[in-house]
Design a protein around this nucleic acid. Structure first.
Length: 473
RNA sequence: GGCACGGUAGCCAAGUGGUAAGGCCGGGCUCUGCAAAAGCCCUAUGCGUCGGUUCGAUUCCGACCCGUGCCUCCA
């Protein structure tokens, strides 16, 4: 099964493929660890995870790198506010980020390099650019990339260099910037300033710290080679971040950098842009506080097409809950055993069976919306097929689990339920009610159910027992 | 101002030159002491507006309206 994906560089759908005999080399721009990531950040990471899972599900091995930006203006400023060293500060947010990723069932990247731990690689790359005349030291002690020496600048974003200067329409900064030859030139190395405090590293150009763009070039090439397969980040990174990465990398090596680029678009919240002032920069904890699970959020985040802006609403989380429950019920009817979520590389290509149309949709430019549509259409068909011929159970189950692997849905809600502690008095009431019901004392049973509801618990009867769950809301 | 993208049922959201996937909500039915759950069924004569091309357009073209993104460090 071919895996097609629109390439930002060409504007066309192109086949995703690794070099012969190698893993698909895949780089993602990761978070700046100065606070909790919000659900908009996680939309991008969830889509990237969907990309990786889809690749692996169709039999493409991957090597996935996602960096951590742990030195920049924000991390320095916020660490100082918090009274912590930069490392203490970014470490704590890195742990938080990793925990959130795990909760969202994002596969762990094979490498998660941080900028601070790759300073030498960045200095070396800057040195290559200086040596080739593509970078220069400015009057302010910083080193800048000389855009005028890189004719291809603008090929990713479609913005030409002249356009940058001419079309900004008043948004152009005044020319009081000093140190740079040209307004558009960007910093590779930032000379140390008073407000940076102890956060300084030595370099051939004096003390300072790396610029933001250089870290991704240096680390991606360090782990994946000077030319690699796929590079991804949020749509806002197309310009200037990715444009600058291309300039730095191709300028230094003279070779093509990443071949294939894709950019998930932004999340909107209740029809509005996310912003601090609107108070809608929700984190995973905010989602939990409203009683939803990370998996429900994941479902929402991946359920729209990644190049289409997605409008997040609380209602969509309710919809996700119901949809997931249907999948869970289907899965547990198929087999009570927990799904195997191991990477299915190797035997996957012919393994989807009746679910193949779902994977075809995912492998066609990551069309998750269409894939989910097909999935739900096939659900009743699977039930019919199963009752007609029970011997198909194993193959239906296998294909279904593989598709769930690709979506990254573990369908493990029952395990979650077990984690909710039921207070003593509640379980005693419930037990008393069950006994009343067994002796057909309907009035008493109903009265006891009323008491349980008053305590915020809902009881549901089955043939041979009952279950308790906290009332919604 | 430049470039790009989008406007599909109450909500979310696919898709196609030939008569609108799917999910949620809502309604109905079956089942069950009751309730809930579950399963089944139904739910857009219309796809921003107005023109054009066509046997036929939501799908192509044009104009317009509205919304969104990027235009130097924001996923």
């Amino acid at each position: 099964m071919d895996f097609l994906l629109q390439n930002t560089l060409s504007g066309h759908k192109e086949k995703v493929f690794p070099a012969d005999g190698q893993a698909l080399r895949f780089y993602c721009c990761g978070p700046t660890v100065y606070g909790p990531a919000h659900i908009g950040n996680f939309r991008t990471f969830a889509i990237q995870d969907l990309f990786r899972r889809t690749a692996e599900a169709v039999g493409i091995r991957t090597c996935h790198v996602r960096n951590l930006t742990d030195v920049d203006d924000k991390t320095i400023r916020e660490s100082q506010k918090a009274g912590l060293s930069l490392k203490e500060f970014t470490d704590q947010w890195t742990l938080r980020f990793e925990a959130d990723c795990k909760a969202l069932n994002l596969l762990e990247p094979h490498h998660s390099p941080s900028a601070v731990s790759h300073i030498p690689q960045q200095i070396e790359l800057i040195q290559r650019l200086v040596d080739k005349g593509l970078a220069y030291k400015g009057q302010d002690g910083s080193v800048y990339f000389r855009i005028s020496a890189f004719p291809d600048y603008g090929k990713l974003s479609g913005l030409c260099r002249d356009g940058l200067v001419c079309n900004a329409d008043g948004r152009l900064h005044s020319e009081d910037e000093y140190g740079k030859e040209d307004y558009s030139d960007f910093a590779l190395w930032k000379g140390w300033k008073e407000e940076d405090g102890p956060n300084r590293w030595d370099s051939p150009w004096g003390p300072g710290r790396p610029g933001w763009h250089i870290e991704c070039s240096a680390m991606s090439m360090h782990y994946l080679g000077e030319s690699y397969d796929v590079h991804s980040g949020g749509v806002d990174l197309v310009f200037p971040h990715h444009e600058n990465e291309i300039a730095q990398s191709e300028g230094a090596t003279g070779k093509p950098f990443a071949r294939h680029w894709f950019h998930p678009t932004h999340l909107r919240v209740e029809g509005q842009k996310m912003s601090k002032s609107l108070g809608n920069l929700y984190t995973l904890d905010d989602i939990r506080a409203k009683g939803f699970t990370p998996e429900e959020l994941r479902y929402v985040l991946i359920s729209g097409h990644f190049r289409q802006p997605l409008n997040f609403t609380w209602d969509s989380l309710h919809a996700a809950r119901s949809a997931l429950q249907r999948l869970q019920r289907f899965r547990s009817r198929l087999s009570p055993e927990a799904p195997s979520v191991q990477v299915p590389v190797g035997d996957s290509i012919s393994g989807f069976g009746m679910w193949e149309p779902v994977m075809v949709a995912l492998a066609d430019d990551l069309n998750a919306a269409q894939a989910l549509g097909r999935l739900f259409t096939l659900l009743p068909q699977a039930e019919v097929a199963l009752s007609a011929d029970p011997s198909q159970r194993a193959s239906i189950l296998k294909g279904f689990d593989m598709v769930m692997f690709a979506f990254g849905l573990s369908l493990d809600a029952p395990a979650m339920e077990g984690l909710i502690a039921v207070p003593e008095d509640v379980s005693a009431l419930a037990e008393e009610r069950w006994q009343a019901k067994q002796s057909r004392d309907w009035a008493k049973a109903d009265a006891l159910r009323g008491e349980l509801v008053a305590k915020g618990w809902i009881v549901k009867d089955a043939k041979d027992g009952y279950s308790l769950s906290p009332a919604a809301g």
